[in-house]
Amino acid sequence: MTSDTDLFKDALGELGDVKPLVQERRVSLNKERKDAELNRRARRESATQEPVSDLNPLSGEYVELVDPWDPLEFKRDGVQNGVYRNLRLGKYAVDARLDLHRHSVELARRAVLEFVRDCVEADVRCALITHGKGEGRKQPALLKSCVNHWLPQLHEVLAFHSAQKKHGGLGATYVLLRKSERKRQENLEQHQRRNR
């Protein structure tokens, strides 16, 4: 009896030259990824003996739905009003983007967590998540509502706001992220040098 795998391999053999598809990176950072990021993820996976995505802290429970035309806005205590205003007005360079179109809620949940952590590791301070407005859908603004629910749960997120029209308007969100520990240490050392 021939297995499905054998049948598939036979069918591929009849097609001649078959080459694997080249996959695009899901998260494109303007800054180059560092080898340390890959090593960190490998260590974390091997230490837990589970895929990292299974350790997702983002709540998959009740999500309060927002209207497709409502702006998303959030600011942690301690974030200066001027910084938040500049974020809201799109004045910061967007160093990383994540597009959630055609994602299921669970895939989006995993993608958001991984994206935010990758951004912090790569010292990205301002990122853009495109989720769409979800207008005219059976469940309007579902991904938008989920993003609004998930981002405040992540310690790395300082603030977020719906984007300006040129970056996707109400279908996208600017995200302001904490500095990585390495970047914080560099700033501290630089500040100490200046004060000497």
Rank of each mutant, 00 (worst) to 15 (best):
L98F: 09
L100I: 12
F74N: 04
L128S: 08
L58Q: 09
V94R: 03
A127M: 11
S59E: 11
L100N: 06
H103N: 14
V63Y: 10
V124R: 01
D99V: 08
L128H: 10
N81D: 10
A108E: 05
E106M: 05
L128C: 10
G90S: 04
A122M: 09
R76D: 04
H101F: 12
V83Q: 14
E106K: 07
V66T: 06
V66E: 02
D95V: 08
Y62F: 14
E114F: 14
V116L: 07
L72T: 01
G132I: 02
P71L: 00
V52L: 15
E61F: 15
S53N: 12
A93T: 10
R125N: 12
A108P: 02
G132N: 05
L89E: 13
V79M: 07
R97M: 08
R109W: 06
Y92A: 09
R137G: 00
E64H: 13
C119G: 05
G90E: 01
L58C: 09
L113T: 09
G60R: 14
G134P: 02
V79N: 09
E114L: 13
A108I: 09
A96R: 01
L65P: 14
Y92W: 11
D67E: 05
Q80I: 14
H101M: 09
E61A: 15
Q80T: 14
